[in-house]
């Protein structure tokens, strides 16, 4: 059980948080313009990186705010957490942006 640094509340027990999967996957600007395949990739396909990646968390039992984290999925260790809209730290190759986190 990890200690997760909520960008608003500080370090808290992992059990207080809920998980939201990959970060920086923006909702398509115009879903109706997408092919079925493109839409399926938005709905169902996410990266599954073995290594450092950016992902979303929510501090469910406290401030209930979403935030992003950079974490190494091989060790499970958090490398950074940051607020939505803030750019992803350079720790990862993941893109930056405000969309979907």
């Amino acid at each position: 059980m990890q200690l997760i640094e909520c960008p608003w509340c500080g370090p808290r027990e992992e059990a207080e948080f809920s998980y939201g999967g990959q970060a920086h996957v923006p909702y398509p600007a115009d879903p109706s313009a997408l092919s079925d395949e493109e839409w399926a990739h938005y709905v169902f396909f996410r990266d599954n990186t073995a290594g450092v990646w950016a992902e979303r968390w929510m501090h469910a039992t406290a401030c209930r705010r979403w935030f992003n984290a950079v974490r190494d999925t091989r060790t499970h260790a958090f490398l950074a957490t940051y607020r939505p809209g803030d750019p992803s730290p350079d720790l990862t190759a993941a893109g930056t942006g405000a969309g979907r986190g």
């Binding site: 990890q2 992992e14 059990a15 999967g21 992902e55 999925t73 091989r74 060790t75 499970h76």
Partner: peptide, 13 residues
């Protein structure tokens, strides 16, 4: 466990 992980271990809770 809720999160993605390749560590072959999970959280104790």
């Amino acid at each position: 466990d809720s999160y993605n992980g390749y560590g072959q271990r999970g959280s104790f809770h």
